[in-house]
Design a protein around this nucleic acid. Structure first.
Length: 573
RNA sequence: GCACGCGUAGCUCAGCCCGGAUAGAGCAUCAGCUUGCGGAGCUGGUGGCCGCAGGUUCAAAUCCUGCCGCGUGCACCA
């Protein structure tokens, strides 16, 4: 529990001793709108209702009577609110001690019994990953880190859609016009090479619609296990998957388990037929196997000719996930356009009699639009991740070079990519998930204002001061009296630090990394104000030591916040 | 047509689940801050019928109802 929550709980308890049937809870207590009014505000409306008295009267009664809260300095009545002022020295000591004690575990939640699988990205293996995948990857990875930090066991899973029309189109085009080209001979990543043929197919198909028949024919050969077709498929899907994995690695994504559609869909057909036999599914007039779901449209789970549809794979996949890993929760990070699909999948699992259907959960995120309109892979209007990060890195590199004349190119490149990733990830994560968003290139490329680089810059400044302190021989370690930290800017920072654990648990509960993004920004903003107002290295020894330990605490918590968001934290930039 | 999501400052978005003090940020714009620990920064100003109309309440951006606008889905596509 966060130091702040502890204090709030003590206040709740103290009020309950005066009003035994008090219905106030810790979350009723909030910050005051203005620091001049005090630190915490307790609204009296709930108590007023119970007691049948005016809120201001209750506040008046409580004022001065609250006892047993060590951190409480004074209480003032402001209309229907009881505003509390905290003893800064007490709180500062408690918060700083908590950070010092827990170090990199500060903010961790208590271990739960939850074991949660998060499936995210789940790409088609026929083209490079694009902007939509980037929002998915950023969201999924941040969610995993937040859930882990909140005390849960997390299993990261990917599903490769490595079979079907998309892959086959690329195969047909390569077969006809590929001329034995390879990623090495072409000098491009495998996913980009496969994507080139995927786009080529659609261009040629517009001229010659008969190409569709070639796709059908190749799909059938693949299905029949034709040796040459399978070999081509293995080669091309490997190229593509390797390329995509390189992109994911750059993004900091690594999976515990990777599923492949090609290894699952047949099992799905069996499950569907078995359920048909038992009368759980039925056949429609065309002969398709259909699940009839209460309150939802019917869902075809197997085509009349016995071939699989998208959801067919999900049947055995979901079953495998839940049983193999003994999960208590299973999340999909998937766009809002699949809301209905996933509701239907959950409904089907329930229909099949699996009690854990209630533990399946869709983390839905809105579509990323471009200002010009919708992204379309086939029309080349996609923003692919490799190109985007490359472009951002170049801009960042130019900024770095302006500031540092004599840096190695390799160091420039390294920092530039970290800044580029910070910029785009923060941009995508700072918007709450279900909202659609417009990807405004200009803004996401910006390094000033409420951006990833601002957070990274804050971290770099903190690290810089700490480095200089060591050079000057004053580390701030050892016995430090932190109670001298009484300046408003210091107090504001300590209050921010005190709520970190609450932020982590709220983000985990809401499945919403934007909570952490907002916090990280607020913390950085508080630091910047502190930095402008208060000298650290030039302060007298006792104060300097105290401020240095505050900076270490802020650096640690900011670093943890950046980690939760999957944003790199370079020490210099 | 039905379902889901969205509508808050010129632009991009928080806040809504769980109703409470003058509705918050960033960008843009205007005016300031540098012999100083990293100016990718800081301080201040301008800018809002919180889509519209009702209702509930001592109190509504927040809850309820209806309407309007935008997006997505309702495929033998993934």
């Amino acid at each position: 529990m966060s130091p702040l929550s502890k204090i709030k709980n003590q206040i709740i308890k103290a009020i309950a001793e005066i009003y035994p049937n008090s219905n106030l809870v810790a979350s009723d207590i909030g910050p005051t709108p203005d620091p001049k009014l005090g630190d915490l505000a307790v609204p009296m409306f709930k108590l007023a209702k119970i007691a049948g008295k005016a809120p201001s009267l209750i506040a008046e009664e409580l004022r001065g009577k609250i006892s047993g809260v060590k951190a409480l300095e004074s209480a003032e009545v402001a209309g229907p609110y009881l505003n509390l002022r905290l003893k800064k020295a007490v709180v500062v000591k408690e918060v700083m001690a908590a950070v010092a004690k827990d170090k990199t575990k500060y903010g961790n939640g208590k271990a739960t019994k939850e074991k949660i699988m998060v499936e995210y990205v789940a790409p088609n293996i026929n083209k490079p990953l694009h902007l939509g995948h980037l929002r998915n990857a950023a969201l999924g990875e941040a969610l995993c880190r937040i859930l882990e930090t909140a005390g849960n066991k997390v299993v990261r899973a990917n599903l490769l859609s490595d079979r079907g029309i998309g892959v086959t189109k690329a195969m047909v085009a390569y077969d006809k016009w590929g001329d034995n080209e390879t990623p090495v001979s072409a000098g491009v990543k495998g996913d980009h090479l496969v994507g080139k043929y995927y786009v080529m197919f659609d261009q040629k198909q517009k001229q010659d619609p008969s190409l569709d028949a070639d796709v059908t024919a190749m799909l059938q050969k693949w299905e029949a296990g034709d040796t040459a077709t399978r070999a081509l498929w293995r080669t091309m899907t490997k190229w593509c998957a390797d390329g995509q994995n390189a992109t994911l690695k750059m993004l900091g994504v690594k999976y515990d388990k990777v599923y492949r559609e090609s290894l699952l869909y047949k099992e799905g057909s069996k499950m569907a037929l078995a359920a048909l036999e038992k009368g759980i599914f039925s056949k429609d007039e065309k002969g398709n196997v259909v699940a009839k779901l209460p309150g939802q449209p019917d869902k075809v789970v197997l085509r009349a000719d016995g071939t699989a549809v998208y959801i067919t794979t999900d049947l055995p996949l979901t079953l495998k996930k839940m049983t193999e890993f003994k999960l208590t929760r299973c999340l999909w990070v998937v766009g809002t356009e699949q809301d209905l699909h996933l509701r239907q999948l959950v409904g089907i699992m329930r229909l099949l009699g699996y009690k854990w259907a209630d533990q399946l959960e869709h983390v839905s995120y809105g579509h990323v639009a471009l200002p010009e309109g919708r992204m379309k892979s086939r029309e080349g209007t996609v923003v692919d991740i490799d190109d985007l990060v490359q472009h951002l890195s170049e801009l960042a590199a130019a900024e770095i070079k302006e500031r540092h004349d004599f840096l190695d190119q390799s160091e420039v490149d390294k920092r530039a990519q970290e800044i580029a990733l910070g910029a785009v990830k923060f941009y995508l994560l700072s918007v709450s998930a279900p909202s659609g968003m417009t990807f405004n290139p200009k803004e996401s490329l910006a390094f000033t204002g409420k951006t990833g680089p601002y957070l990274q810059y804050t971290n770099a400044r903190i690290q810089s001061i700490l480095r200089k302190a060591i050079e000057h021989g004053s580390t701030g370690a050892g016995r430090v009296d932190v109670s001298v930290l009484t300046a408003p800017a210091e107090w504001q920072l300590v209050m921010k630090l005190s709520e970190f654990a609450d932020i982590v648990s709220a983000a985990a509960k809401e499945r919403d990394p934007s909570v952490v993004a907002r916090y990280a920004y607020d913390l950085s903003k508080s630091f910047a104000e502190f930095y402008e107002q208060v000298p650290v290295l030039k302060a007298d020894a006792p104060l300097r030591r105290a401020r240095l330990s505050l900076l270490r605490a802020v650096g640690l918590v900011l670093g943890r916040s950046l980690y939760l968001l999957g944003i790199p934290a370079p020490k210099e930039m």
